[in-house]
Design a protein around this nucleic acid. Structure first.
Length: 485
RNA sequence: GGCGGGGUAGCCAAGUGGUAAGGCACGGCUCUGCAAAAGCUGCAUUCGUCGGUUCGAUUCCGACCCUCGCCUCCA
């Protein structure tokens, strides 16, 4: 079965066919963070969505080149640099490092390329020169260079591919600083911003004088530098459709004359506790805020992955608690399979690289296997909810067989293989059994002695002690089981 | 004002022109010294409202109500 995705360009679900179908290679660009603050949970939804797209493509056997830019020069950054009296690099690198740490905490695969805007100034300048040479960009009296939408359209190009635009009906409202720059037309956007005193030391020389790149041009320059003038996938949050992505198309196609991106994917925003996230409402969370409340990156990842990417998702703390319970069910089941299969381990899950990327077909005539229903769900425009349903049905079925002692070690091992392949897409792992300190083992043994002597008062006391030390005990027919709380 | 999403159980959330996945929460039973875990089991005659099309609509059409987003900072 082939993968289909909703393409904002055509406003419909389409079969995914890479530009180079023979090569099986896919170029994917995701708009990355602007490193002026910690990324919030809404940002993370989009990045986790990007990770899901990449993982599923890799699961399908595509060789993905994943690019994510780092916007490290931009109005807000400059303001903060000025306010904190630091340097651009010192300021942005700190947030960049945090971003990658958080990305890892959420178990997102690291993009293959993470270009910084400030390291692509020469490429940006070349791109602007091309646009000027083609007559679709101009330098204004203030020294800034703008993209002319009128000229671009005059060349027969289409501005407004991602969203329907009606410039006449657009309000030149408060949010448009009409007097800030000397543009020829309100809709034109800056490619190069001339240096102003507020920029401080943040500027680069250029053929148009000192200044800095506009926001949109950096993505065009970096994506085309790494992936070429035309590539397969470009993702971002839905708010970026206009103007950011529209402008990227205009700049890129205006410069190369070639189609820029084949499939545009946009992730919906989230609400927190039913409301738009805002610092004043107290529902603004960064990942570290949630970690401070005792939640793990894994739980956050799971919750962010419970809803379809094109639907607004209501992120709640209750939901996060539910995520913990749901994950524990999966862990319990996978843990039992590991124990039965005699896998060494209880250790960390085997390397994802060892996993065969080709999904198996279900048995002819039989019920669809986990792998088949999971794959079918994600192939259908990443229907992750249906994919989870497949996972939990499998958990229930597996638990049932385990309870009936109906699984052999070989069958358990095979079930684990399937799970690992599923997990290569979900990326929620399964917690490895923690090392048990000698003190805890001793307490557990003491409790067993007490239980055998039917001294339940004593055994319950020890259970409470263990709990206080962070270990839960579950008695099973095969003896007590320790669980890190 | 223009454009675009949504309204499905207590909460989150799939889905379909033929009678509602899954998760969380909650109740019952089995097991257990108790508990936990697991298993079994119960939990929407109903999918914002009102009309229309249809043998049949939550699903298609129309109107309305509510809600969210974008309209040059935005994931």
């Amino acid at each position: 079965m082939s993968l289909s995705l909703f393409n904002t360009l055509t406003r419909g679900v389409q079969d995914f066919v890479p530009l180079n179908p023979a090569g099986n290679k896919v170029g994917m660009y995701c708009c990355g963070p602007t490193v002026y603050d910690f990324a919030h949970i809404g940002n993370w939804r989009t990045f986790v969505f990007g990770d899901l797209v990449r993982r599923h493509l890799e699961f399908k056997g595509f060789a993905v080149t994943h690019v994510m830019n780092i916007t490290d020069v931009e109005d807000k950054i400059i303001r903060r640099v000025r306010e904190t009296k630091t340097t651009l690099t010192a300021f942005t690198r700190e947030y960049e490092a945090t971003f990658f740490a958080d990305l890892e905490a959420l178990n997102c695969r690291r993009p293959h390329h993470t270009p910084r805007a400030t390291e692509f100034i020469p490429e940006i300048i070349v791109l602007i020169e091309k646009l000027i040479a083609r007559g679709v960009a101009y330098q204004a009296p203030d020294g800034s260079v703008y993209f002319s939408i009128e000229k671009y359209r005059g060349c027969g190009c289409h501005y407004g591919q991602l969203v329907k635009l009606n410039f006449e009906a657009m309000r030149a409202g408060e949010r448009v600083a009409t007097d800030e720059y000397e543009k020829e037309s309100l809709a034109d956007f800056a490619l190069w911003k001339a240096r102003v005193p507020e920029d401080g030391e943040v500027f680069w020389p250029s053929p148009w004088g000192e200044g800095r790149p506009g926001w949109h041009i950096e993505c065009s320059a970096m994506s085309m530098k790494v992936l070429g003038p035309s590539f397969d996938l470009h993702l971002g949050g839905e708010d970026l459709k206009f103007p950011h992505h529209e402008d990227e198309i205009a700049q890129s196609e205006g410069a190369t004359g070639k189609p820029f991106v084949k499939y545009w994917l946009h992730g919906a925003h989230l609400l927190v506790e039913g409301k738009k996230m805002s610092k004043s409402l107290g529902n603004y969370f960064t990942l570290r805020d949630l970690v401070a409340q005792g939640f793990t990156g894994r739980e956050v990842r799971y919750l962010l992955l419970t809803a379809h990417y094109r639907e607004t998702f209501n992120f709640t703390l209750d939901g996060l608690t539910g995520a913990r319970t749901a994950l524990a069910r999966i862990d319990e089941c996978v843990g039992k399979l590991r124990a039965l299969s005699g896998a060494p381990g209880a250790g960390p899950s085997r390397s994802e690289a060892q996993i065969n990327p080709q999904p198996a077909e279900s048995e002819p005539g039989g019920p669809p296997s986990l792998l088949a229903s999971f794959t079918a769900a994600l192939d259908d425009d990443l229907n992750i909810s249906a994919a989870w349903a497949a996972v939990f049905e499998w958990v229930r079925e597996t638990n049932k067989q385990l309870a009936e002692n109906a699984l052999t070690a070989t069958a358990a091992s095979s079930a684990l293989d399937t799970w690992e392949r599923i997990n290569s897409v979900l990326g929620i792992g399964a917690v490895a059994e923690a090392e048990v300190p000698a003190e805890i083992v001793a307490l557990l043994e003491a409790r067993q002695v007490a239980r055998q002597a039917r001294d339940f008062k004593r055994s319950d006391e020890i259970r409470d002690t263990l709990k206080a030390k962070g270990w839960g005990v579950e008695d099973s027919p095969k003896g007590p089981k320790l669980k890190k709380l």
